[in-house]
């Protein structure tokens, strides 16, 4: 699970653009297995938190409506090149992962 997140953060003109990809099945709980006809249990990321120097710059709450292997992008100001940016997620089964990356 250690490498379920990829982050790219770039600072330009005071604004940092963050792009992140997570590896996750994002099952809604409404889908059925075509072979067995059984419902596939819900398994999706509920919460994504992105922190810069201990401050939360973005926090997302998701339903199962976000695509498999989710991608997010957002912008914030106040960071400099070389700063650490931490992104973490928690899913509905209680699993979580986090990743720290330097802003370029």
């Amino acid at each position: 699970m250690a490498k379920s997140i990829k982050i790219r953060a770039k600072e330009k003109g005071g604004v940092t653009t963050v792009k992140a990809l997570m590896t996750h099945p994002m099952e809604t709980g409404g889908r059925k297995d075509k072979k067995t006809g059984k419902t596939i249990p819900a398994h999706f990321i509920q919460e994504v938190v992105c922190k810069h120097k201990g401050n939360t710059v973005m926090m997302a709450e998701w339903s199962g409506g976000v695509s498999k292997n989710p991608y997010i992008s957002f912008k914030f100001s106040g960071a400099a090149k070389g700063d650490d940016l931490e992104l973490s997620w928690t899913d509905n089964t209680g699993k979580s992962d986090s990743m720290t990356s330097k802003i370029k």
Binding site: V15, H52, N55, T56, V57, M58, M59, A60, E61, W62, S63, G65, V66, F74, K75, F76, S77, G78, A79
Partner: peptide, 10 residues
């Protein structure tokens, strides 16, 4: 989805 933006976020 709901994204809650921090103070610096656009």
């Amino acid at each position: 989805a709901n994204f809650v933006m921090g103070p610096g976020a656009t």
